[in-house]
Design a protein around this nucleic acid. Structure first.
Lengths: 200, 200
DNA sequence: TCTGTTACTAACAGGCTTGTGAATAATCTA
DNA sequence: TAGATTATTCACAAGCCTGTTAGTAACAGA
């Protein structure tokens, strides 16, 4: 049938975006099939092209939506001339990742591929990291101690920040069934804060 | 032409495995094409099937070879009843990753996908991590302090350990052209050691 | 009520990718 | 030296995936 009574293009569009986000996060760009997205969204795959033209465009939209949230967060944090401290960056990002785990997972696929398909979308995130890094370099007195290069500190924190969200079986097993529970969130967040205290 | 004078099946097999390893590390399982591997190895793609049957089998072989090296390392470290300390695990793994960066990159693809296609191959690595974790849990007195759950410590170290090898543009930019130089290796290794001192 | 537009499906075309099979040349063995 | 074996290529089959196109039902405006 075509055009059911309650047809709402914006709703359909969002449903497709959601389905695409899940599929891309699960299987990466090359691993996802347009028909799989369509099936998840409950439509035929022709409709994906009707709304989003091509697979590449759809992916861009998905990534853009995810990283747009991050960009908004950074703008909020730095509005009124506030400087973005590394601590803010990390803990706020943690909260955002928790709310939108697909973002980390798509980041992970991108970090694995290393090509700059979505470089423009992730630019805001990278820029924010660069700002935080410069703060880090300026504020950290232990810069010249061995093993204390701020770049290394920064990369390690980044690793600790994102790795928790990976779907790796070993990590999954480690935290068991109540992973991603609220209690879990509190514990991991406290750990990240403690890590920042140690390293910054 | 068929069968050139210097034909050496073991050599050809290794060449194909090397090419496949590079391609899979670059583009992940779904992103790599058999013909691309063949081209890289300087053979036709029919030959890949002659040696390795299917794409899946070839991938298994690649992963098996990489993680086999890791398993050998662990066996060496624990031979003669030595216990595998977390410190050993991390620093030795660092050296191994440095020698075989494709391993981390393929691990990354696997961690992204989260499915257990290669679970059997990675089992040795996971088991070693589990052993190290139990040591960590037993030896670390600060277990009950907030933010000091040994599982979190362990996951953060894992993140810091692998993230450096990612091909992410931001990280690439951070360390510039002399990344993966010997000087770079020393600095990062020292950082990992310092991180272990702080966290363990 | 008629006509045009919009959201949507079904079917298909074309290209790409994996895998197969026949052919071939170099080497090994009898 | 003849026949078997092995390593390799070439060409092709079959299926899969993306993207296109024609058609259709509901609704909107005149």
């Amino acid at each position: 049938m075509a055009r059911p009574k309650d047809a709402d293009p914006e709703q359909t569009r969002a449903t497709i975006l959601d389905a695409a986000e899940d599929e891309f996060a699960d299987r990466g760009f090359h691993g996802t099939r347009m028909v799989a997205i369509a099936k998840r969204a409950g439509v035929t795959h022709g409709l994906l092209h009707y709304y989003f033209d091509s697979k590449d465009r759809l992916y861009e939209q998905v990534v853009g939506r995810l990283f747009g949230r991050h960009r908004d967060l950074f703008e909020r944090l730095t509005c009124g001339g506030n400087s973005l401290t590394p601590r803010d960056l990390v803990l706020e990002s943690f909260d955002l990742f928790w709310a939108h785990p697909n973002q980390v997972r798509i980041m992970l696929w991108e970090m694995a591929s290393g090509d700059d398909r979505v470089e423009r979308s992730m630019k805001a995130f990278y820029d924010a990291m660069a700002i935080a890094l410069s703060t880090l370099t300026a504020d950290t007195p232990r810069t010249s101690e061995p093993g204390r290069d701020p770049r290394d500190v920064y990369v390690s924190i980044l690793g600790a920040l994102v790795v928790y969200f990976f779907r790796d079986p070993a990590i999954k097993q480690l935290f068991g069934a109540n992973r991603f529970s609220d209690e879990d969130r509190k514990r991991r967040r406290a750990h990240m804060a403690a890590l920042l205290d140690l390293l910054l």
